[in-house]
Structure formats: structure tokens, C-alpha cells
């Protein structure tokens, strides 16, 4: 037994086509509507992608611009940091990683005898 849906399909397929010189007005309307929707979809997609990119760029900019933020070297990304685990897995790693400590005062030039010499060893 043939399903009724198949019979409808055959009936539609059997409808004679209209000639190219006389397009169906309904079909033209649908095509114009579809084209317009496609343009809207394209514009919406472009805006969405641009928005995401702008937010990402702004985020990076802000993270670098906030005073007191990380002062790690600019080349930090070139060094391996391992598997991305946080040191200590939520527990302390020991000394605070806040910053390298500056001396109380910078070195002063000396003309005194120097019993100790700092150099590579």
C-alpha cells in the first residue's frame, strides 16, 4: 500500500511549470523576502562576530592597562608554563608572588677597596 503523503508529492511534482517569461508573483515575493532575510542574517552575523572580537580586544587592553596589574615580562608567553595547573591546586605555594622587592636605596658608586666582587660564577 502506498502512503498518502507520497501521492501528494507525486501530485505536486506533476504540476506543470510556468514559463520563464511569466514568473509567479507569489514566488517573486518569496524570493525577495528570502533574499532580504539572508541579508539581515548576514549583517546580524557580522555584527555578532565583530562584537565578540571587540570585547576580546577590549578585555586584553584593559587587563594590561589597569595600574598595578601584572608586571611580568612581555615575552612571558614564549616560555612554557606546563599543563596549566595552578600551583598548589588551591593551596599556598609558599612565599607570596606579589612582586620582586626593591632595595631600600639604590647602590651608590664606591671608590673604596672591595674585598668582595660580584660577577658570574
Amino acid at each position: 500500500m502506498v502512503p498518502s503523503g507520497s501521492l501528494r508529492s507525486i501530485a505536486v511534482m506533476g504540476t506543470p511549470r510556468r514559463t520563464a517569461g511569466h514568473p509567479n508573483p507569489d514566488r517573486l515575493v518569496r524570493l525577495r523576502r528570502d533574499a532580504a532575510l539572508e541579508r539581515v542574517r548576514s549583517v546580524t552575523k557580522t555584527i555578532a562576530v565583530a562584537s565578540v572580537a571587540a570585547v576580546a580586544v577590549l578585555g586584553v587592553y584593559i587587563s594590561r592597562a589597569v595600574p598595578g596589574h601584572s608586571s611580568t615580562p612581555t615575552g612571558a608567553a614564549t616560555y612554557p608554563s606546563g599543563g596549566g595547573q595552578s600551583t598548589g591546586g588551591g593551596t599556598s605555594a609558599g612565599p607570596s608572588p606579589s612582586s620582586l622587592s626593591a632595595p631600600n636605596s639604590p647602590p651608590a658608586q664606591s671608590q673604596q677597596p672591595t674585598p668582595v666582587v660580584s660577577g658570574s660564577s
Partner: peptide
């Protein structure tokens, strides 16, 4: 006046080209 330390390429070089005094913390080369 701090401790006086010679600065050179090699640790202990008696002909260190320059010297500084430091009063706290550390110094490394």
C-alpha cells in the same frame, strides 16, 4: 656607608671595573 662590592664579569675579579656600596638586601650578577 654600606658594604663595598666590586662589579665585574667574573666573580672575584681583582680588576673589577666599577664598585658600589649597598646597605641592605641583595646584589647578584
Amino acid at each position: 656607608g654600606g658594604f663595598h662590592v666590586g662589579i665585574a664579569d667574573i666573580c672575584g675579579d681583582p680588576d673589577a671595573p666599577t664598585a658600589v656600596s649597598i646597605d641592605s638586601g641583595g646584589l647578584a650578577t
